[in-house]
Design a protein around this nucleic acid. Structure first.
Lengths: 225, 225
DNA sequence: CCTTCCATATTTGTATACAATACGATCCCA
DNA sequence: TGGGATCGTATTGTATACAAATATGGAAGG
């Protein structure tokens, strides 16, 4: 992480996820290099990585811009993610070890605490949630599946909307995770896949609801055209 | 394609696919740069792309090597590809236009001619096959799906084995494509998905059979370890 | 008022130099 | 003989300079 190209990657990525660099903004290498305190070489490398993450797009003339995620794009990504995470859950259930199961349980315990606190701890929720899904992906033991999902998980709009999820939605996530744990404990791949697929699709609708709400309040606006 | 980094990408990729650079071979930037007639800068970029294609792996200390695809890796990739191409076929069926259908029919006509010729024209088959699947992916209209599938389609071992497929296997491919066209003509997403999933999985077993045969004849050898 | 074309400014692509890091062989010392 | 430090070599990381490509703005002409 101390390499300049990694720093550039993280810096640019977080500027995109936070909205500091809005959708459609041009990403000129020189300017980014200055902002990140490195030369253009590592910035170029970071841009290529972000491009393969689909966070950045390039025109046919090689100019880079912050990718513009329409609501359809988000739906598309969730749909694919539901399928792939479902598959991962199935494989994980078939390969589950007791040690991994403990780690998954611990992650959901953290989620439970984050959700039940006086004021919902969204950061804690996201952290536990990431760990929960990361362990499953690890147990699924498919480099390719992991690589594919890696490009789908981080979506700028989703990220910015997360803080507005209702507590009810967060609680339901926790409950679905508990059910997944039961499926894992039984090593029941079909059950795990079904729950996971539904879990992601429900999360999509939670996002869509929150997003619609925010749009109505004028807190966020839909991307132009 | 005339950019140096593109040339480097194509050159290195084809050296890997052809087996000129065998699995496990170290990829030193300087040496590749000389071999490709460009400087290290575009070679570095090409290596990163190949890495995201999973054709190249990097150690924790940043050395690049030709990725080692075990038979399990290939099975894994085919399994994912079956799922994703199935999904693409479903979407394509739901969005099919008459113009696209004509292009798909033309592609399969080319495949038919290649297969039926006196000596099976494998290159023509592969070309038509690529076009067939490319049009479907285009009609499916999901940038993300296309991006994910892009990393799964080219596999070195599969590529090198293709020339040894039996004519029967190629003919069956042609027939399944015809059935897919029927599903597209009916705009029947579920049917298209089912056929496509089966089509890819059958192709996997055709590959596995050919591969096993070649291994027994000592024409190819399994990767070390 | 709109289009076309050109000069200029911006931006990206590539080569190269040098710095930092990793590898491997050798040597030293128990 | 084995383990570990050390140094030379190989390899990668970064900065920078310059070349090539692209965009932009304004003048000329319709």
């Amino acid at each position: 992480m101390s390499r300049a190209s990694d720093r550039a990657y993280e810096a640019i990525r977080s500027m995109i996820l936070s909205g500091e660099l809005p959708a459609g903004a041009q990403l000129a290498e020189e300017a980014l290099a200055e902002k990140c305190g490195v030369s253009r070489t590592p910035v170029r490398e970071a841009l290529r990585r972000l491009e393969s993450d689909l966070l950045v797009t390039r025109t046919d003339t090689q100019r880079s811009f912050v990718a513009d995620w329409s609501i359809d794009d988000v739906a598309d990504a969730f749909e694919l993610r539901a399928m792939l995470e479902g598959k991962a859950a199935r494989r994980a259930a078939e390969r589950m070890t007791d040690a991994a199961l403990d780690r998954i349980r611990a992650a959901n315990r953290q989620i439970g605490e984050a959700v039940r606190g006086a004021s919902a701890d969204v950061v804690g929720f996201l952290e536990g949630n990431r760990e929960f899904h990361a362990v499953i992906l690890e147990v699924a033991a498919s480099r390719r599946l992991a690589a594919l999902l890696g490009t789908l998980v981080e979506q700028p709009v989703v990220w910015r909307t997360a803080h507005h999820y209702s507590r009810e939605a967060l609680l339901r996530s926790f409950g679905e995770h508990e059910e997944l744990i039961a499926a894992f404990a039984r090593r029941d791949g079909a059950w795990a896949e079904a729950i996971m697929t539904g879990h992601i699709l429900r999360a999509y609708h939670a996002y869509a609801d929150a997003h619609r709400g925010l749009a109505e309040q004028g807190i966020i606006r839909e991307a132009a055209e």
